[in-house]
Design a protein around this nucleic acid. Structure first.
Lengths: 143, 143
DNA sequence: CACACTTATTAGCTTAGCTAATAAGCCTGG
DNA sequence: CCAGGCTTATTAGCTAAGCTAATAAGTGTG
Protein backbone atom coordinates (compact mmCIF):
# COMPACT_ATOMS: atom_id res chain seq x y z
CA UNK A 1 0.00 0.00 0.00
CA UNK A 2 2.03 2.87 -1.25
CA UNK A 3 -0.25 5.26 -3.07
CA UNK A 4 -3.02 7.14 -1.37
CA UNK A 5 -5.16 8.55 -4.16
CA UNK A 6 -8.84 9.04 -3.46
CA UNK A 7 -11.19 6.76 -5.42
CA UNK A 8 -12.33 9.74 -7.51
CA UNK A 9 -8.79 10.64 -8.39
CA UNK A 10 -7.95 7.09 -9.25
CA UNK A 11 -10.97 6.83 -11.53
CA UNK A 12 -10.12 10.02 -13.32
CA UNK A 13 -6.46 9.22 -13.68
CA UNK A 14 -7.15 5.76 -14.94
CA UNK A 15 -9.64 6.97 -17.50
CA UNK A 16 -7.22 9.60 -18.69
CA UNK A 17 -4.32 7.18 -18.88
CA UNK A 18 -6.39 4.67 -20.85
CA UNK A 19 -7.67 7.31 -23.25
CA UNK A 20 -4.27 8.77 -23.95
CA UNK A 21 -2.46 5.49 -24.22
CA UNK A 22 -5.10 4.21 -26.58
CA UNK A 23 -4.47 7.20 -28.85
CA UNK A 24 -0.77 6.73 -28.57
CA UNK A 25 -1.10 3.09 -29.57
CA UNK A 26 -3.20 4.01 -32.54
CA UNK A 27 -0.57 6.47 -33.73
CA UNK A 28 2.00 3.72 -33.87
CA UNK A 29 0.18 1.86 -36.59
CA UNK A 30 2.32 1.68 -39.71
CA UNK A 31 0.54 3.08 -42.76
CA UNK A 32 -1.39 0.55 -44.76
CA UNK A 33 -1.37 -1.83 -41.88
CA UNK A 34 -4.05 -3.30 -39.68
CA UNK A 35 -5.84 -0.95 -37.33
CA UNK A 36 -5.92 -1.72 -33.64
CA UNK A 37 -9.55 -2.72 -33.97
CA UNK A 38 -8.87 -5.13 -36.79
CA UNK A 39 -5.89 -6.57 -35.01
CA UNK A 40 -7.93 -7.10 -31.88
CA UNK A 41 -10.70 -8.89 -33.73
CA UNK A 42 -8.25 -11.11 -35.55
CA UNK A 43 -6.56 -11.95 -32.27
CA UNK A 44 -9.91 -12.91 -30.77
CA UNK A 45 -10.44 -15.30 -33.63
CA UNK A 46 -7.04 -16.84 -33.16
CA UNK A 47 -7.70 -17.34 -29.48
CA UNK A 48 -11.35 -18.30 -29.72
CA UNK A 49 -11.15 -20.45 -32.83
CA UNK A 50 -14.11 -20.33 -35.17
CA UNK A 51 -16.61 -17.78 -33.91
CA UNK A 52 -19.84 -16.43 -35.33
CA UNK A 53 -20.06 -12.71 -35.99
CA UNK A 54 -22.29 -12.35 -32.96
CA UNK A 55 -19.86 -14.12 -30.69
CA UNK A 56 -17.03 -12.05 -32.05
CA UNK A 57 -18.95 -8.82 -31.54
CA UNK A 58 -19.56 -9.81 -27.93
CA UNK A 59 -15.93 -10.67 -27.40
CA UNK A 60 -14.93 -7.30 -28.78
CA UNK A 61 -17.67 -5.40 -26.97
CA UNK A 62 -19.06 -3.97 -30.13
CA UNK A 63 -22.51 -4.05 -31.75
CA UNK A 64 -23.10 -6.64 -34.47
CA UNK A 65 -23.28 -4.14 -37.35
CA UNK A 66 -19.96 -2.71 -36.29
CA UNK A 67 -18.45 -6.17 -36.40
CA UNK A 68 -19.90 -6.73 -39.86
CA UNK A 69 -17.74 -3.84 -41.07
CA UNK A 70 -14.60 -4.99 -39.32
CA UNK A 71 -15.06 -8.51 -40.65
CA UNK A 72 -15.55 -7.14 -44.16
CA UNK A 73 -12.23 -5.32 -43.97
CA UNK A 74 -10.41 -8.41 -42.74
CA UNK A 75 -12.03 -10.49 -45.43
CA UNK A 76 -11.04 -8.07 -48.19
CA UNK A 77 -7.46 -8.68 -47.20
CA UNK A 78 -7.94 -12.41 -47.08
CA UNK A 79 -7.07 -12.60 -43.41
CA UNK A 80 -10.17 -14.53 -42.37
CA UNK A 81 -12.41 -17.01 -44.06
CA UNK A 82 -16.03 -17.79 -43.53
CA UNK A 83 -17.67 -21.20 -43.52
CA UNK A 84 -21.36 -21.99 -43.14
CA UNK A 85 -22.54 -23.07 -39.70
CA UNK A 86 -23.05 -26.86 -39.70
CA UNK A 87 -26.55 -26.80 -38.23
CA UNK A 88 -27.83 -23.20 -38.37
CA UNK A 89 -28.28 -21.68 -41.79
CA UNK A 90 -28.35 -18.15 -40.43
CA UNK A 91 -24.99 -18.27 -38.80
CA UNK A 92 -21.50 -18.12 -40.20
CA UNK A 93 -18.23 -19.28 -38.75
CA UNK A 94 -15.25 -16.99 -38.98
CA UNK A 95 -11.67 -18.19 -38.70
CA UNK A 96 -8.28 -16.69 -39.37
CA UNK A 97 -6.90 -17.80 -42.75
CA UNK A 98 -3.36 -19.07 -43.18
CA UNK A 99 -2.44 -15.59 -44.20
CA UNK A 100 -4.25 -14.15 -41.19
CA UNK A 101 -2.23 -16.31 -38.85
CA UNK A 102 0.95 -15.35 -40.66
CA UNK A 103 0.11 -11.68 -40.28
CA UNK A 104 -0.49 -12.17 -36.57
CA UNK A 105 2.88 -13.85 -36.29
CA UNK A 106 4.50 -10.86 -37.96
CA UNK A 107 2.71 -8.52 -35.65
CA UNK A 108 3.77 -10.42 -32.64
CA UNK A 109 7.38 -10.19 -33.71
CA UNK A 110 7.65 -6.89 -35.47
CA UNK A 111 4.80 -4.76 -34.32
CA UNK A 112 4.07 -3.34 -30.91
CA UNK A 113 7.72 -2.44 -31.12
CA UNK A 114 6.99 0.89 -29.65
CA UNK A 115 5.06 -0.49 -26.70
CA UNK A 116 7.47 -3.36 -26.20
CA UNK A 117 10.36 -0.95 -26.28
CA UNK A 118 8.74 1.24 -23.70
CA UNK A 119 8.05 -1.69 -21.45
CA UNK A 120 11.62 -2.86 -21.86
CA UNK A 121 12.67 0.47 -20.41
CA UNK A 122 10.77 -0.28 -17.25
CA UNK A 123 12.30 -2.02 -14.28
CA UNK A 124 11.33 -5.62 -13.67
CA UNK A 125 9.21 -4.49 -10.79
CA UNK A 126 7.40 -1.91 -12.90
CA UNK A 127 6.74 -4.52 -15.57
CA UNK A 128 5.35 -6.74 -12.89
CA UNK A 129 3.00 -3.98 -11.77
CA UNK A 130 1.86 -3.43 -15.33
CA UNK A 131 1.34 -7.15 -15.89
CA UNK A 132 -0.80 -7.45 -12.80
CA UNK A 133 -2.73 -4.34 -13.70
CA UNK A 134 -3.31 -5.61 -17.25
CA UNK A 135 -5.04 -8.66 -15.81
CA UNK A 136 -7.20 -6.44 -13.62
CA UNK A 137 -8.04 -4.14 -16.51
CA UNK A 138 -9.08 -7.10 -18.63
CA UNK A 139 -11.39 -8.13 -15.83
CA UNK A 140 -12.81 -4.62 -15.77
CA UNK A 141 -13.37 -4.57 -19.50
CA UNK A 142 -15.03 -7.97 -19.42
CA UNK A 143 -17.64 -6.52 -17.10
CA UNK B 1 7.70 -10.61 -8.76
CA UNK B 2 4.72 -12.83 -9.15
CA UNK B 3 3.87 -13.01 -12.81
CA UNK B 4 6.14 -14.58 -15.38
CA UNK B 5 4.75 -13.43 -18.71
CA UNK B 6 7.20 -13.00 -21.58
CA UNK B 7 7.67 -9.43 -22.82
CA UNK B 8 5.76 -10.29 -26.00
CA UNK B 9 2.84 -11.63 -24.04
CA UNK B 10 2.82 -8.63 -21.78
CA UNK B 11 2.80 -6.26 -24.73
CA UNK B 12 -0.05 -8.07 -26.39
CA UNK B 13 -2.10 -8.39 -23.25
CA UNK B 14 -1.62 -4.78 -22.34
CA UNK B 15 -2.59 -3.56 -25.79
CA UNK B 16 -5.67 -5.75 -25.74
CA UNK B 17 -6.68 -4.66 -22.27
CA UNK B 18 -6.27 -0.99 -23.17
CA UNK B 19 -8.24 -1.37 -26.39
CA UNK B 20 -11.11 -3.19 -24.77
CA UNK B 21 -11.30 -1.02 -21.71
CA UNK B 22 -11.27 2.06 -23.85
CA UNK B 23 -14.29 0.75 -25.74
CA UNK B 24 -15.99 -0.18 -22.55
CA UNK B 25 -15.45 3.31 -21.17
CA UNK B 26 -16.84 4.84 -24.29
CA UNK B 27 -19.99 2.76 -23.98
CA UNK B 28 -20.69 4.24 -20.58
CA UNK B 29 -21.21 7.71 -21.92
CA UNK B 30 -24.74 8.87 -21.18
CA UNK B 31 -26.59 9.93 -24.32
CA UNK B 32 -26.26 13.59 -25.22
CA UNK B 33 -23.32 13.91 -22.94
CA UNK B 34 -19.69 14.71 -23.51
CA UNK B 35 -17.61 12.14 -25.33
CA UNK B 36 -14.48 10.80 -23.71
CA UNK B 37 -12.39 12.87 -26.11
CA UNK B 38 -14.20 16.08 -25.29
CA UNK B 39 -14.02 15.35 -21.59
CA UNK B 40 -10.31 14.71 -21.82
CA UNK B 41 -9.66 17.98 -23.65
CA UNK B 42 -11.75 19.94 -21.19
CA UNK B 43 -9.88 18.35 -18.32
CA UNK B 44 -6.57 19.30 -19.90
CA UNK B 45 -7.74 22.90 -20.02
CA UNK B 46 -8.77 22.82 -16.40
CA UNK B 47 -5.40 21.46 -15.38
CA UNK B 48 -3.27 23.45 -17.79
CA UNK B 49 -5.12 26.73 -17.56
CA UNK B 50 -5.35 28.81 -20.74
CA UNK B 51 -3.79 26.89 -23.61
CA UNK B 52 -3.51 27.57 -27.30
CA UNK B 53 -5.05 25.06 -29.70
CA UNK B 54 -1.60 23.83 -30.57
CA UNK B 55 -0.64 23.28 -26.96
CA UNK B 56 -3.89 21.50 -26.33
CA UNK B 57 -3.44 19.27 -29.35
CA UNK B 58 -0.01 18.32 -28.08
CA UNK B 59 -1.32 17.61 -24.62
CA UNK B 60 -4.01 15.38 -26.11
CA UNK B 61 -1.68 13.74 -28.61
CA UNK B 62 -3.80 14.73 -31.55
CA UNK B 63 -3.11 16.69 -34.72
CA UNK B 64 -4.10 20.38 -34.74
CA UNK B 65 -7.00 20.00 -37.20
CA UNK B 66 -8.46 17.29 -34.99
CA UNK B 67 -8.30 19.62 -32.03
CA UNK B 68 -10.00 22.35 -34.05
CA UNK B 69 -13.04 20.07 -34.29
CA UNK B 70 -13.04 19.09 -30.65
CA UNK B 71 -12.73 22.70 -29.60
CA UNK B 72 -15.60 23.65 -31.92
CA UNK B 73 -17.86 21.11 -30.21
CA UNK B 74 -16.94 22.32 -26.76
CA UNK B 75 -17.47 25.90 -27.82
CA UNK B 76 -20.92 25.18 -29.28
CA UNK B 77 -21.93 24.02 -25.84
CA UNK B 78 -20.43 27.05 -24.18
CA UNK B 79 -17.99 24.97 -22.17
CA UNK B 80 -14.90 26.88 -23.20
CA UNK B 81 -14.18 30.43 -24.22
CA UNK B 82 -11.52 31.85 -26.43
CA UNK B 83 -9.56 35.04 -25.90
CA UNK B 84 -6.97 36.57 -28.20
CA UNK B 85 -3.35 35.96 -27.38
CA UNK B 86 -1.88 39.11 -25.77
CA UNK B 87 1.18 39.31 -28.00
CA UNK B 88 0.67 36.96 -30.94
CA UNK B 89 -2.18 37.73 -33.28
CA UNK B 90 -2.21 34.21 -34.74
CA UNK B 91 -2.78 32.43 -31.51
CA UNK B 92 -5.84 32.01 -29.36
CA UNK B 93 -6.16 31.16 -25.70
CA UNK B 94 -8.71 28.56 -24.69
CA UNK B 95 -10.09 28.29 -21.17
CA UNK B 96 -12.95 26.40 -19.57
CA UNK B 97 -15.96 28.66 -19.05
CA UNK B 98 -17.86 28.84 -15.78
CA UNK B 99 -20.25 26.32 -17.26
CA UNK B 100 -17.37 24.14 -18.40
CA UNK B 101 -15.99 23.99 -14.89
CA UNK B 102 -19.45 23.21 -13.53
CA UNK B 103 -19.84 20.37 -16.02
CA UNK B 104 -16.47 18.96 -14.96
CA UNK B 105 -17.62 19.10 -11.34
CA UNK B 106 -20.73 17.14 -12.24
CA UNK B 107 -18.68 14.61 -14.09
CA UNK B 108 -16.32 14.17 -11.25
CA UNK B 109 -19.20 13.46 -8.93
CA UNK B 110 -21.74 11.68 -11.08
CA UNK B 111 -19.90 10.26 -14.01
CA UNK B 112 -17.36 7.49 -14.19
CA UNK B 113 -19.81 5.78 -11.91
CA UNK B 114 -19.30 2.58 -13.77
CA UNK B 115 -15.53 2.66 -13.52
CA UNK B 116 -15.57 3.89 -9.94
CA UNK B 117 -18.01 1.14 -9.03
CA UNK B 118 -15.80 -1.47 -10.60
CA UNK B 119 -12.76 -0.16 -8.80
CA UNK B 120 -14.69 -0.15 -5.54
CA UNK B 121 -15.20 -3.87 -6.05
CA UNK B 122 -11.47 -4.38 -6.03
CA UNK B 123 -9.47 -5.09 -2.92
CA UNK B 124 -7.33 -2.29 -1.53
CA UNK B 125 -4.29 -4.08 -2.81
CA UNK B 126 -5.72 -4.40 -6.30
CA UNK B 127 -6.62 -0.72 -6.32
CA UNK B 128 -3.09 0.01 -5.31
CA UNK B 129 -1.78 -2.02 -8.23
CA UNK B 130 -4.07 -0.19 -10.61
CA UNK B 131 -3.05 3.19 -9.21
CA UNK B 132 0.61 2.42 -9.65
CA UNK B 133 0.02 1.06 -13.12
CA UNK B 134 -2.00 4.15 -14.07
CA UNK B 135 0.99 6.31 -13.27
CA UNK B 136 3.19 4.08 -15.40
CA UNK B 137 0.73 4.10 -18.27
CA UNK B 138 0.58 7.88 -18.19
CA UNK B 139 4.33 7.91 -18.47
CA UNK B 140 4.08 5.56 -21.45
CA UNK B 141 1.51 7.72 -23.16
CA UNK B 142 3.51 10.86 -22.59
CA UNK B 143 6.29 9.27 -24.57
C1' DC C 1 10.59 44.82 -46.16
C1' DA C 2 10.36 40.27 -48.67
C1' DC C 3 10.30 35.83 -47.57
C1' DA C 4 10.26 31.98 -44.69
C1' DC C 5 8.16 30.08 -40.72
C1' DT C 6 4.23 29.25 -37.41
C1' DT C 7 -0.57 28.99 -36.21
C1' DA C 8 -5.22 27.99 -36.97
C1' DT C 9 -8.61 26.61 -39.87
C1' DT C 10 -10.93 24.42 -43.91
C1' DA C 11 -11.64 20.63 -47.00
C1' DG C 12 -11.93 16.08 -47.71
C1' DC C 13 -10.88 11.52 -46.58
C1' DT C 14 -11.03 6.89 -43.54
C1' DT C 15 -12.26 4.25 -39.57
C1' DA C 16 -15.09 3.14 -35.78
C1' DG C 17 -18.88 3.29 -33.49
C1' DC C 18 -24.13 3.59 -33.03
C1' DT C 19 -29.49 2.65 -34.04
C1' DA C 20 -33.20 1.26 -37.07
C1' DA C 21 -34.76 -1.55 -40.61
C1' DT C 22 -34.64 -5.74 -43.45
C1' DA C 23 -34.05 -10.48 -44.98
C1' DA C 24 -33.31 -15.05 -44.01
C1' DG C 25 -33.55 -19.04 -41.16
C1' DC C 26 -35.08 -21.41 -36.94
C1' DC C 27 -38.43 -23.19 -33.78
C1' DT C 28 -42.64 -23.89 -31.31
C1' DG C 29 -47.70 -24.11 -30.08
C1' DG C 30 -51.90 -24.79 -31.66
C1' DC D 1 -47.44 -29.04 -40.17
C1' DC D 2 -47.23 -24.39 -40.57
C1' DA D 3 -47.96 -19.29 -38.82
C1' DG D 4 -45.96 -16.30 -36.28
C1' DG D 5 -42.45 -14.88 -33.29
C1' DC D 6 -37.49 -15.06 -32.25
C1' DT D 7 -32.44 -14.83 -33.65
C1' DT D 8 -28.76 -13.77 -36.83
C1' DA D 9 -26.53 -11.13 -40.16
C1' DT D 10 -26.49 -7.43 -43.05
C1' DT D 11 -27.67 -2.84 -45.04
C1' DA D 12 -28.53 2.01 -44.62
C1' DG D 13 -27.52 6.05 -42.69
C1' DC D 14 -25.88 8.75 -39.01
C1' DT D 15 -22.01 10.94 -35.69
C1' DA D 16 -17.43 11.30 -33.78
C1' DA D 17 -12.59 10.93 -34.09
C1' DG D 18 -8.77 10.73 -36.35
C1' DC D 19 -5.59 11.84 -40.45
C1' DT D 20 -3.12 14.76 -44.47
C1' DA D 21 -2.99 18.61 -47.64
C1' DA D 22 -3.98 23.18 -48.57
C1' DT D 23 -4.93 27.97 -47.24
C1' DA D 24 -4.98 32.36 -44.80
C1' DA D 25 -3.22 35.24 -41.48
C1' DG D 26 0.39 36.87 -38.59
C1' DT D 27 5.36 36.97 -36.96
C1' DG D 28 9.93 37.88 -37.36
C1' DT D 29 14.40 38.11 -39.53
C1' DG D 30 18.42 38.83 -43.02
Amino acid sequence: MVTQASPEELTERLRDAITRLNRRLRQERPVGDLTVTQLSALTSLRIGGALTPRELSEAERVQPPTMTKIVAKLEERGLISRTPHPTDGRQVLLSPSEQGLAVLEDYQRVRDEWLAGKLAGFTAQERDTVARAAALLERLARD
